[in-house]
Amino acid sequence: MNIAVFVKQIPDPALPGELDADHTLKREGKLVLDESDSYGVEMALQLVDKAGGGEVTLVSMAPNNEVSGLRTALAMGAAKAILISDDALAGSDALSTAKVLAKAVERAGEVDLVMAATESTDGYTGTTPAQVAELLGWPSLTFAKHVEIGDGKVTIQRQTEAGYDVVESSLPAVVSVTAGVVEPRYPSFKGIMAAKNKPVDEVKVTDLGLTAEQVGWAGARQQITNVEAAPARAAGEKIEDDGAAHEQVVAFLEKLKVI
């Protein structure tokens, strides 16, 4: 069982986001592993373990040959990584990103499954995994909250509005997992040391057989025309509870005629 896992490396989500002059998200400074992808990494490691063989290959597209997030995932137990980093990729939208990631999956060799998160923390388009699947001509099982593999098939519980659906497909396939599907492990000290020597295959856009026109700003075909602060909502009354605040809540609800 060989699994390719997409891991996005993003600016620290705890820091306030900022836009660059060209209206793209500022991505300078250290990037970290998107926590959403740590679930995919953990799930992939467990599935390979259960299958009794194979390995996990990470795939990441990031600026400035960023590896800090990859090292975190390698320390968790992934065997190796493919890193696509190229100035031509600046401004890439979801479709361009998907084209790059799909080519990288082909480069990874025999892969039974691609694992991704449902949506990234900074971009959250939530389309990339199904776009990759369509590019590869594979089935996609998205919004998985439970994943099992057996008999050459993958079976998931797919989140729906009403509950969940059980969805099954042949392999190879793309699966995107929701947060919380598994408990991501903390890298051990040994894992962190080993990660330093694990191979990272650094590739450019042309190595993947793509041209600069297909990706980056040129590929995005959209233009940001306006950026402004959202109108703020005004605060109303604030009271300290002196033991009778509930009476004011009741009065407020009465005034609104909900009771």
């Binding site: 939208d93 979801a94 479709l95 998907a98 959250y124 388009t125 939530g126 389309t127 990339t128 995994p129 199904a130 776009q131 699947a133 369509e134 590019l135 996609s140 998205t142 919004f143 797919r158 989140q159 729906t160 509005e161 590929g219 995005a220 075909r221 959209q222």
Partner: peptide, 20 residues
């Protein structure tokens, strides 16, 4: 859930970008 799946696959078929 299904809206995003349909949009994602269609964008590849038509080679059109998506805004989400």
């Amino acid at each position: 859930y299904d809206g995003r799946d349909a949009l994602a696959r269609l964008s590849v078929k038509l080679d059109k970008p998506v805004l989400t």
